[in-house]
């Protein structure tokens, strides 16, 4: 059974239907990429999965349970973490306080401390700057903090929205290297990206979104070599 199964969801903003009849699934340990142009509905889809938006039709099954009517803060408790677009770290709090908030749903202090060590292993730079105010971090460091914060809830699945946004090519590489590292350690990741090339190179499978519905899906490596994808999304 798939860990996450999105079934025919439809989301409307007022009169406007943002996404229509989208279905996809993610198995345990997979990285699945959602790629597509601006306005294709990638972020809307992600928000619907994590409960920030409620679908007008369809279902979101997480471990076989329909979560489409559960409030977003409770879905976090069920084991889903969402790294939002634009990082959204708490600018006025320290790095450590941000990470602690990531573990808000947990109460076992020992486990949280172990988890914190693991996050520092993935992101040594956060350990160096743990007492720094998050707003003074660079864009790349804030992205790392947002990812580390999500890991602090010890999630079964991580949703990442545009982790490459606004970062230099070098930092984009660094962030994606960390995503691969997380993948190797067994994490399940749903990745939304405009940078299709980077996304396809780390993902197992991918779905292409076009104006609110899925235009294509398949093996990520095959898509990298697909002529239509190359032309439309890879600029080749």
């Amino acid at each position: 059974m798939a860990m996450l199964e999105v079934k025919n969801i439809e989301v409307c903003y007022g009169m406007i239907r943002a996404i229509k009849d989208i279905s996809f699934e993610i198995n345990k340990g997979e990285i699945v990429a959602l790629i597509g142009a601006n306005g294709a509905g990638k972020t809307t889809t992600l928000h619907t999965v994590s409960g920030l938006l409620k679908p007008t039709a369809g279902q979101v099954l997480f471990d076989g349970k329909d979560i489409s009517k559960i409030p977003a803060h409770r879905i976090v408790t069920m084991g889903m973490a969402h790294v939002p677009e634009g990082r959204r770290v708490f600018q006025q709090l320290s790095v450590l306080d941000n990470l602690k908030l990531g573990a808000y749903t947990r109460t076992d202090k020992k486990e949280i401390a172990e988890n914190l060590k693991k996050v520092y292993d993935h992101f040594p730079r956060l350990a160096e700057r743990k007492h720094q105010i998050a707003g003074t971090l660079s864009g790349g460091e804030q992205q790392m903090l947002a990812m580390g914060r999500a890991l602090m809830s010890n999630p079964d699945i991580i949703l990442m929205d545009e982790p490459s946004m606004g970062l230099s090519p070098l930092l984009v590489k660094e962030i994606f290297a960390i995503i691969e590292e997380l993948h190797k350690s067994g994490a399940t990741i749903l990745l939304v990206e405009q940078n299709a090339k980077m996304a396809l190179s780390v993902a197992d499978r991918a779905y292409v979104l076009e104006t609110g519905s899925i235009a294509m899906s398949g093996d990520a490596k095959e898509m990298l070599n697909n002529d239509d994808i190359k032309k439309a999304y890879l600029g080749q």
């Binding site: 920030l52 803060h73 973490a81």
Partner: peptide, 22 residues
């Protein structure tokens, strides 16, 4: 913990929800 959740909500309500804050 509640205090830091209050700070989080006051800074960014949406991000606080994603931390599991009610």
């Amino acid at each position: 913990r509640t205090g830091s959740a209050m700070l989080a909500v006051s800074e960014d309500r949406g991000a606080a929800i994603l931390m599991g804050v009610n």
